[in-house]
Computed example of a mutant assay.
Amino acid sequence: MTASRVVALGHYQPAKVLTNDDLAAMVDTNDEWIRSRVGIRTRRIAGPDEPVDELAAQAAGKALAGAGLTPDDIDLVLVATSTAIDRSPNMAARVAARLGMGGAPAVMDLNVVCSGFTHALATADHAIRAGSATRALVIGADKMTEITDWTDRTTCVLTGDGAGAAVVEACPDEAAGIGPVLWGSVPEMGHAVRIEGSPPVFAQEGQSVYRWTTSRLPALARKVCEKSGTSPEELAAVVLHQANLRIIEPLAAKIGAVNAVVAKDVVDSGNTSAGSIPMALSKLVERGEVPSGAPVLLFGFGGNLSYAGQVISCP
């Protein structure tokens, strides 16, 4: 068996910006209320001509360029999304087609909602270790505004659209790669975050999610570090699912990552579900805030009350 590593990242967001003041003209809310409760200032909104696979392909193209690879170098495409409206062809197949891929890549979607990217990253790692793939394109992409109830002020203030992507390839050094995943769920609380109905609409039980994340996740995140042989104090960055700044800040503090940069992309991007972790990580790397090779904790949580996390070496 061989290890795997993330070699390049990319992200993409639509051009249209929706501010808190814009939302205040739509529902009974205001900038101070939104910032005090979720910490969000702005979010990006995709138009009708920007489907999920377009967001995903844009991010993927940037990741491929950063890796110095062509689409034909990829033999596995994984897209984490919960906002694919059509059942077939799946988003991974559509992304492969948009990129002009040849070579018969395997194409799979994973719907694990907000923890989709960390689940997909672990799946790519396992495939490479097992020898069934050599290079993978792992994408988290969601168009959350398409499933948002714009009359519900408790949820419409949260959502945004975007995508992030990572190129993953085999490497000989376990310590320089993707660490062991810790994943699981709380099925009895699966109702706390929902995308249901026809057409589908996003809803959640915010207080239940807040209590669970702030009380249970610190211990799980520390266990991720333990599985990788990394102490929280050694982490250079912590990239949690960008759900709510009021969850991210206390959770990062409770993990004990005292020397780490904490990703807070939610402030400007809102909750982009599966897109949030790779997009936030890509921005940290692009700004030079995390040195190459440094340990980074990724931890996703959300729908199904599923969670998944791993420590990776920063590309």
Rank of each mutant, 00 (worst) to 15 (best):
A163D: 05
C171F: 05
P250A: 09
G131R: 12
G179S: 03
P315M: 15
T70L: 12
A294R: 07
G68W: 08
A96E: 05
R153W: 14
L78T: 03
D86V: 11
A136M: 00
H241F: 03
R129Y: 07
I248V: 13
I40R: 05
I45D: 06
G162D: 12
K227W: 02
K143T: 11
A236W: 12
L137H: 02
E289W: 11
I277V: 11
D125K: 00
T123C: 12
L78G: 00
H191N: 03
R5F: 06
V209D: 07
T272F: 10
T19R: 08
E205N: 07
A136P: 12
G39S: 11
L23A: 05
N111A: 01
P172D: 14
T29K: 10
A8R: 11
G162S: 08
A3H: 09
I147D: 02
S273R: 00
T159H: 11
S82E: 09
A56P: 00
K264D: 08
D142Y: 03
L137Q: 10
E226P: 04
Q310V: 03
A57L: 09
R216I: 04
A175Y: 08
A63S: 13
L251N: 02
R98P: 04
G184P: 14
G288P: 01
A308K: 11
R287Q: 15
S215L: 10
E249W: 01
L137I: 10
V258Q: 15
S273P: 00
I34C: 10
Q13P: 00
R246N: 12
L251I: 09
A56T: 01
H191D: 14
V209P: 14
A96V: 12
V17D: 01
V138I: 04
N271Y: 08
